[in-house]
């Protein structure tokens, strides 16, 4: 039997009406009398579903409509048209039972109160979400352990570094153990170590509670590590929805071959496009269909020490997607 999806979006649209005026004094005066507005279609027509327990990467360039979609999913924005259902609820009704089961983490928005210790903000959330004390203690201890927060709990938020604060924000957003997580750039602005920490944590949370995660990130490392499936939108429209591997196959007709040679300064330009040549290490790009032939030729013709064939970096693939 098929499970009911946790998230269902059908023909979702969101149009903003924004005031518009030309620059200059004349235009300013004119705008007092006639207000010009313009419709901006942030989300044009999106349809997808997400099954319970899935971790889906939600990708797109700035302004693609990702945040707008996440806000509609969490009930902050009212869709212009289309159907939207999360855990069987209509998000914009902001039903209490619905809010109790979801969370939205937005990069800079704070769950935490600036002036008081982190632990006190957690305690406040415990009351708001009506968490029984032992359940709360259990979840909190787990989060503290997974994110290594023990030393941060007694510190006022304003004394934390950005990375520390982000870890605490994430923990505060998850104290009520939500079933559905909307994470908007959860690792933005963090250093590599901290990014990895948050990333590992999200994976762990997903496994432990079978939680559904929809995640946007500009760091492909996040997406590669966490998401088997990606949804890509561009200009408010769905460009791709499927496995990450399929994305690479579909949008990148190339493979990368890295060869280490026993000779210096070899010219490999008749084997493929030379991307980099540093000393005796050369990186080539070849059409996927020719990979086997080129590899064979290289091995036969040249004193090869080492050779690896790989998919191009995911960033490159994504770039490719957006340029189409």
């Amino acid at each position: 039997m098929a499970t009911t999806p946790d998230i269902t979006i059908q023909n979702l649209r969101k149009t903003y009406v924004v005031p518009e005026r030309d620059t200059g004094l004349g235009a300013a005066i004119k705008s007092l009398i006639v207000r010009k507005t313009r419709d901006v279609e942030a989300v044009k027509d999106i349809t997808f579903t997400v099954e319970p327990g899935e971790v889906v990467g939600f990708l797109g360039p700035n302004g693609a409509g990702k945040t707008t979609t996440l806000k509609m999913l969490s009930g902050l924005l009212h869709p212009t048209s289309g159907d939207i259902s999360v855990l069987g609820y209509t998000p914009f009704n902001r039903n209490k039972e619905f809010l109790q089961q979801i969370t939205l983490v937005m990069g800079q928005r704070n769950q935490l109160i600036w002036d008081i210790p982190v632990g006190d903000s957690f305690e406040r959330n415990r009351a708001i979400y009506r968490l029984p004390t032992d359940e709360y203690n259990h979840t909190r201890d787990e989060l503290v352990d997974l994110l290594d927060l023990a030393e941060l709990l007694p510190k006022p938020v304003r004394n934390l570094s950005l990375g520390e604060r982000m870890k605490c924000e994430v923990a505060a957003a998850l104290l009520h153990r939500p079933q559905v997580l909307f994470l908007d750039e959860p690792t933005i602005g963090l250093d590599v170590t901290m990014q990895r920490r948050i990333r590992t944590f999200i994976g762990e949370y997903n496994k432990r509670y079978n939680a559904t995660v929809l995640l946007t990130s500009h760091y492909m490392a996040d997406v590669e590590a966490l998401c088997k499936r990606v949804i890509i939108i561009h200009h408010g429209q769905l460009l791709f929805d499927g496995a990450l591997t399929e994305l690479v196959n579909r949008f990148s007709p190339h493979k990368t071959i890295v060869v280490d040679l026993d000779i210096e300064q070899a010219d490999l330009s008749n084997y493929g496009d030379v991307i980099t040549a540093e000393g005796n290490r050369i990186t080539l790009r070849v059409p996927k269909s020719e990979t086997a032939t080129v590899t064979g030729r290289l091995l036969a013709d040249l004193p090869v020490i080492d050779l690896t064939v790989a998919d191009p970096p995911i960033e490159e693939v994504i770039e490719q997607v957006f340029s189409t």
């Binding site: 806000k71 969490s74 009930g75 902050l76 902001r94 209490k96 039972e97 809010l99 109790q100 979801i102 969370t103 939205l104 937005m106 928005r109 704070n110 769950q111 708001i128 979400y129 009506r130």
Partner: peptide
Amino acid sequence: QGALSVLLLKPV
């Protein structure tokens, strides 16, 4: 500042 959004996501 969008701080209201955080409040609106709470079940209170």
